[in-house]
Nucleic acid binder design. Sequence first.
DNA 1: CGTCTGCATACCCACAGAGCATGGGACGGG
DNA 2: CCCGTCCCATGCTCTGTGGGTATGCAGACG
Lengths: 306, 306
Amino acid sequence: MDLHALRYFVAVAEAGSVTRAAHRVHVAQPSLSRQLRRLEAEVGLALFTRTPRGLTPTAAGRRLLEAARGLLTRADQVELTAMALGTGQVERLDLAATAVAIDDIIAPYLTTLGPTHPFLAVVDETPTRLPTALSRGADLVITAIAPVADAHVTLIAQVPIYAYVPAAHPWALQSRVSLPELVEADLLLPSAEQATRQLLDAAVHRQGLHYRHVTECRLPQVAQALAASGRGAAVVSDDPRFALRPLRVDEPGGALRLPLYAAWERGHYADGVIRDLVERLAQYCVDRYGPSVGPGPVSGAASSER
Amino acid sequence: MDLHALRYFVAVAEAGSVTRAAHRVHVAQPSLSRQLRRLEAEVGLALFTRTPRGLTPTAAGRRLLEAARGLLTRADQVELTAMALGTGQVERLDLAATAVAIDDIIAPYLTTLGPTHPFLAVVDETPTRLPTALSRGADLVITAIAPVADAHVTLIAQVPIYAYVPAAHPWALQSRVSLPELVEADLLLPSAEQATRQLLDAAVHRQGLHYRHVTECRLPQVAQALAASGRGAAVVSDDPRFALRPLRVDEPGGALRLPLYAAWERGHYADGVIRDLVERLAQYCVDRYGPSVGPGPVSGAASSER
DNA sequence: CGTCTGCATACCCACAGAGCATGGGACGGG
DNA sequence: CCCGTCCCATGCTCTGTGGGTATGCAGACG
């Protein structure tokens, strides 16, 4: 059950004769004749009825013909994609990104640019799955923790992180909060392996502060649900999709910022295309939010009351 | 770009190592290694990055992997259908039939029996295309003209033919019409190659009658449209889907009846299944309409005012 | 009844793919 | 620091499959 045999089979069916088919596929008639009989032997019944003027497919032959045609066209497509890969052409890029990157950068970038070539298939991954996204099929990853794997890494933006509080919270009237204030509150924080938590922990440690009461959440949705039920006052997260009031978290030098890296495989077959895309993304962040700075609460998608 | 090479390729990708993959596909490691490098050479770039502990697919490798997996599952399906063909299993039968057979026999048979195995894919063909339906893919044909091709033929029913008249026609109050009456009317008849026309012509000739005024129509829809616009009084047809009043056409011996034959390819791979189905269809006609007789205007689906 | 057409068979050759043996690079433990 | 281990790559040989040429053979047609 070789592709070759099937190709010959459909050629014979379409030509209606072994001889004509042989001429069409540029092969001698006996070879084709043998392949055909071999196929019939494999299947176990006649695929053609032999007439003095040629061959006509039997019912079984017609049924197999349908299947074979479908398989062959599919095989040709695979061949084409392989060729496209070899010549560096690319029609689709799989992009995996954290929530904040998608909401604050990718989505507005795509909406302002419209459809792009190559087509960007964006998937948002949970922070714990992001480091392995490259090896699981993503062509480009945007993450806060630079992957250690054999990859190109570029810093494309630095976005502030936010403390989200319910509308009834005493802080609800202010737009930012300092770290000494923050650590006194009941906090819902990402779990330790997440970049935002590491960033926050480092800043807290730098200032010699200590958390008072912390509840860890691996998923932002859970944090939001807990906050809504009063189990925590402030949620610190990089996920901009909260229905809570965002406060920018400040430290003395300014806002606490999460770096966002674009990472892609070293030697990727579409390296040039990806490089180009990453550069445009970084430039987009600069144009829109200022140099070396990501979107803030004043302008950009994260500024609305969500 | 062989299926074999692709199979090895996905095996290596799934095993994460040439050695393990070789063991899994029951082949020596060097063969697999060579096939892999050959595939990479064909595509033109590295599909795996070699690590001391095994191989991990590159971006191009992952992309090709998707395509290859799809192709291989499809190939396996084709293999399975081929096997099924060989062992005489059948999951689908393509049945081509005239309008009258579908409306009066197939449809009621299927509605009373519910879903059948094998699944019956019913297509209605125009009378001119029916004789070649067997060679164009149908597994079973129900037609009024027994095909001359190398096929089994069985008479399964004999259905009356009808003259359809507008509701305003003088005959509209009667339920049948004799041939001497009929030939006096303005007639819309099927064209000469159609079975109903041949049946009618033969009966007319047997009784020494002659048509007065005939308009030929190859398509029943056209006949109906012409009748509706007053271009003909009576439409003789075996198509039971007219919005006109049906009159049974009588000759001295009784109703003028159109034979319906079931025909299927001699040596069909599902011969037993088809034989069984045909027998059940014939038995269904006998049970429902009496021996050697098809549905009449009194009982059955054709009796309603259509 | 000869010829023509078209499929099947016989025989030979070439190459692809499999196996075996072996080289070589990268970790890891003593 | 070196040796053992693990794993991939390569060289060599052999067999099996597919292709080519020559030919047989059966039905159609004049």
